[in-house]
Design a protein around this nucleic acid. Structure first.
Lengths: 187, 187
DNA sequence: TCGTAACCGAACAGATTGTTCTTTAGTTAG
DNA sequence: CTAACTAAAGAACAATCTGTTCGGTTACGA
């Protein structure tokens, strides 16, 4: 990709992130993003057809990053991520979210929480299938699989929301414990 | 309240509900609402300062209605709602949501899901405290109370979302079973 | 070095918001 | 029943935002 394109794209992402820390998504105007990024109006629209597209693409990049390690690690080859140790994986995710996901978490509480939920579900399903349900835990005979999937992903997002509400005081380990305890009996 | 006011208010609510069935919240314009309600521009703004206020007030009325019976029933006086039978209460809620909450459910999946989550939490906390946690179930020693509260309310919303995704095929009883099974071990 | 592709800035139409005004019509009190 | 009050209608308004078009400038990469 052309260096100029990458530069513009990053500038827009940064400006947008910055704005998201102080205003809510729907309040932010394209003009503000343009000003913050020092980018021409035409340029912005050459990159992103609408503000929503910007959000979507940014989410995609962030999620890909946060989940990259957890997903790349093949269950059979990585010890710390070994199948059967979902606690380690979940803890890892919380670490990632804390260090890198300051804004992710901001987005989570804004009007676009729905979008996040979808992304989470998408990425999480993969993880859950591979590391949690597939592991040594016993499966519930009562609950349909897709229900279970939604429930677990939703609970994870819920935990993150709760974390944020508490100013992220709890440690990733502690959270992972809560999360597993909350969903434990269901799986 | 002046009959004219009530009439206008209802017309706006109806028009808004109708629009929500076909477009998403952010796409709907005040003009569309005005046209749908056959109401003057001035009149709309006399009732609701912004579109967000309209949504908020409508949510408030709907939630009050959906939860009214469940909350009004004093645990000690109503047999079907007796403390210790949370399953009946939850089933009841799903019934209410299905019959009356067609639009509630639409709203739940739109961008304003966050708003709904807040309302649900608010109303649900009351219910949970009174009928579920306070009942005969054993309490988890591991999980903080507010965490548990958020988790349960979040799970309920999650179930409703899943229900909607499946075109509300499942019966309220079935859903209540799923819901209780999912949160069972946590409480 | 040269052509191409990205960027800039200004200006534009179109749509939306929220306000102000005057006129009309319904409601309530005396 | 009438008079005073209150709400609604409708038109017109400025202000803002969106998304596009155009010509000119700059930077990349072959």
């Amino acid at each position: 990709m052309d260096r100029r394109q990458r530069k513009t794209r990053d500038a827009i992402f940064d400006a947008f992130s910055e704005l998201l820390l102080h205003s809510s998504y729907s309040q932010i105007t394209v003009q503000e993003i343009i000003d913050g990024a020092n980018v021409g109006r035409t340029t912005f629209y050459a990159h992103f057809p609408t503000k929503d597209d910007l959000l979507r693409e940014m989410c995609a990049e962030m999620f890909a990053h946060v989940f990259s390690k957890a997903l790349k690690a093949e269950p059979t080859h990585d010890f710390s991520m070994a199948r059967g140790d979902p606690m380690a994986i979940v803890t890892h995710l919380f670490y990632h979210l804390r260090e890198h996901g300051r804004m992710l978490v901001v987005l989570l509480t804004c009007e676009q929480g729905e979008l996040f939920q979808r992304y989470f579900n998408e990425y999480f399903n993969e993880l859950v299938t591979r590391h949690i349900l597939g592991g040594s835990m016993r499966r519930s005979a009562v609950l349909p699989e897709d229900f279970l999937m939604d429930h677990i992903a939703g609970s994870f997002v819920g935990v993150v929301r709760w974390w944020l509400k508490n100013d992220m005081e709890q440690s990733p380990e502690e959270l992972a414990g809560y999360f597993m305890a909350a969903i434990q009996p269901a799986v």
